[in-house]
Each structure stands twice: as C-alpha cells, then as structure tokens.
Design a protein around this nucleic acid. Structure first.
Lengths: 193, 193
DNA sequence: GTCTATATATTGATAGAC
DNA sequence: GTCTATCAATATATAGAC
C-alpha cells in the first residue's frame, strides 16, 4: 500500500507507543512493531537510526498528548479545585488509559528505564514535570505559595502509588476508592485561606 | 572451588536477587548471574529447570527477608504508632535498600512483571500482602475496625508512589520530605479514639 | 554435582536491489 | 522510500564428559 513518508513515520511511532505500553520497552522488538504496523523492520532505519530514537519519539508524542489533555482540563473546569479533581478523576474506572491493566503510561516506563536505560529515564521522567507544572499552578491559585510545588509532587506521587498497587492486584475498585480519598484530601486543602 | 549443593543453590539465588533488583528481571541473563556468582550457567539447570524458577526462589527469599524485618520492627517498637512510623522510616536516607537508585524492591518487580509475565506478577504482588497484613494489625490496634485494611493499603500505596517519583528524579530529598508528611498523617490518625 | 561445548531462536542493526 | 536478505551478538536451554 502506498503511504507518504511522514505517515509511515507516524505509524511506526503510534504502534511503538502502544506496544511499549502494553509489553514494555525492552520486550517490544523491531519485528513485533513491524508486524503490527505492516512496515518491514528494515524500513525503520530510514526514519530512526536506533531503537532509542523510536523511544524518544514516543516520549515526545506522549508529552504532546498529555499537554493537550491538560489544556482541555484547564478550559473545562473554572476553579483550581475542580481542575485538581479532574486530575484525580483520571484514576477512576480502571484508569482512562488502562492503568489497572498496564500501569501508568509514564510511571511504568520511568520505572523500567530506571534500571538499565538511565539516560532515557530522564527524558521519560520529564513527562512527570508536565503534570507537576500544571498541578502546581492549581495549588498556587488556591493560595499556597512556595508550598505549591510540594503539594503538586505529593499529589502526583500518591496517584502513582495508587496506580502501582491497583496494577499489582489487577484491582480497579482500589482506584475508585482511593480517588474518593484523594478528593476528600483536596477538598480539605481547598479551604486554605 | 568446592561447595556443597545447597550452598551453590543459595549463591545463585543471592546473586540473582541482587541483579534482578539492579538490572530488572528480563535484563538479567544467565551469563551475567553465572559470571557474578562464579557458577557456570550450564550448572543452573541442575537446580532450576527454567529462569522463572529462579525468579520464584528469589521472590520467596524476599518474602522471608521482609517477614524477618517486620518481626524485628514488631519487637522493637512498643506502640502501633511507633511501628507504623518505623515503616515510614524505611523511606528515609535514600531508602534502606536503595529505593531512590533502583526503585522499590517489590514495586519495581511487580511493575515489570505486570507487562509480559502476568503469572509471575501475582507471586511478586503477594509480597505486598506481607506488608499490608502487618500494617493492618497496627491500624486495628489503633482502633480502626473494618477500615484497618483500607488504611494499610493506602499507606503502602503512598509509600510506593513516593518511591516511584524519587526514583524517577533520582531525588533522595523527596523521600525524606514525604516521609515527614506521612508521619504527620499517621500522628493525626493515631488520635482516633 | 560440576564443567565445557553447543543447539536453537531472537535480538538490534546493515547492505543493497528496486 | 520500500523491501528482502542477512549479519553478528546474545538469549535460554541442552548434551554429555568428568
């Protein structure tokens, strides 16, 4: 089938993105990406000089996706508390992206890369910053000054832990219960003057 | 060098335990274990019929280690609050087992196995139960009835999230700061009547 | 029980025709 | 830009001498 170059490149990235999430980075071979995408693996090197370059492209793709989502949440929710609760809402119903099945899209990648791909881990970890920066703005609007970033990191960390445990037990109910608990915590923080 | 059979088996498990933690399960080859342990890889199949059997032995080894640690904490701390704080203390100073460098011993393994070794993941996840059962007892002693297990899982989850984020950023300071925050939370829970 | 040698499959990566 | 064929390295696993 005929395809323009950019389309082929995007197709490789899209397929790699999904497989890296479902199978992990090291467990996803060129052949498996090639098979699912319908692109011969020998073709990859026309677009990427090595596997780690595919990973970089996938990370940048996830960053754009996350930022777009945060922008929508920013628009759709009028108050900082509503925005923080929208972040927590992401956990409910099994996690919007299948967190209970495959773990967090960012967290599981960061954990894997931290073992034997430490240079690449830094790039993946920067996806956390995208969330933290946005959460920090919300806490700042609630009146927390220098503490805003600490609260942002804490909320992200708690969400990560909830994702890890629900993934370990394959238990979506835990996600919902803990999302409720985080909502209560946020409500108590919002009355801060 | 001469070695009794049991010693060789233990040596393989010890070495695999460390390398699985530092490099991840899939990234640790028989050759690397053989090299570090000084045991030829062809020798492994006298003790384990496959790689996943080494993993099982490593998991059981970690379970025994965790249970022994919990027993000591139980003895050394007179009150349930002190015991819960001892659990949180584990996070401080980079994590007693190098959590900021390699992630949590249980959590990082569970996350990896959840992708493409789901049968083995269940066994690894049961290590969480060892912690949760113990934490649940402490909350029960504080007077929390049916909620004790929920609090136990929540505390474990938050500790996991803190570990994931500190590992992502290679930031031991975050572990200390968040340990303080968990201590405050526990202190507020302890006044429950 | 211990060791060397090796089988078989798969990996990331290349070469070169079209 | 696309594709086939293939390389060199490495993986788990096995066979068989000692």
């Amino acid at each position: 089938m005929y395809r323009k170059g950019q389309e082929t490149r995007d197709l490789i990235i899209d397929t790699a993105d999904r497989l890296f999430y479902e199978r992990g980075y090291d467990h996803t071979s060129f052949r498996s990406i090639a098979q699912e995408a319908g692109v011969p693996s020998g073709n990859f090197y026309h677009y990427f000089k090595a596997k780690e370059n595919i990973l970089e492209a996938v990370i940048e793709r996830r960053r754009a996706m996350i930022q777009a989502q945060l922008d929508i949440w920013q628009q759709e929710n009028p108050t900082p508390l509503a925005r923080l609760k929208r972040f927590v809402q992401m956990l409910r119903n099994g996690g919007e992206d299948g967190a209970f099945e495959y773990g967090c899209l960012v967290g599981s990648l960061t954990t894997e890369l931290g073992k034997e791909h430490k240079e690449q881990q830094q790039k993946a970890s920067s996806l956390f910053d995208t969330f933290i920066d946005w959460l920090e703005k919300q806490f700042a609007e609630l009146g927390y000054g220098d503490e805003s970033r600490d609260y942002a990191k804490r909320l992200l960390a708690y969400a990560q832990g909830i994702s890890v445990v629900s993934h370990a037990y394959r238990d979506p109910a835990f996600l919902n219960k803990e999302a409720d608990a985080l909502d209560h915590w946020l409500a108590s923080l919002a009355v801060h003057s």
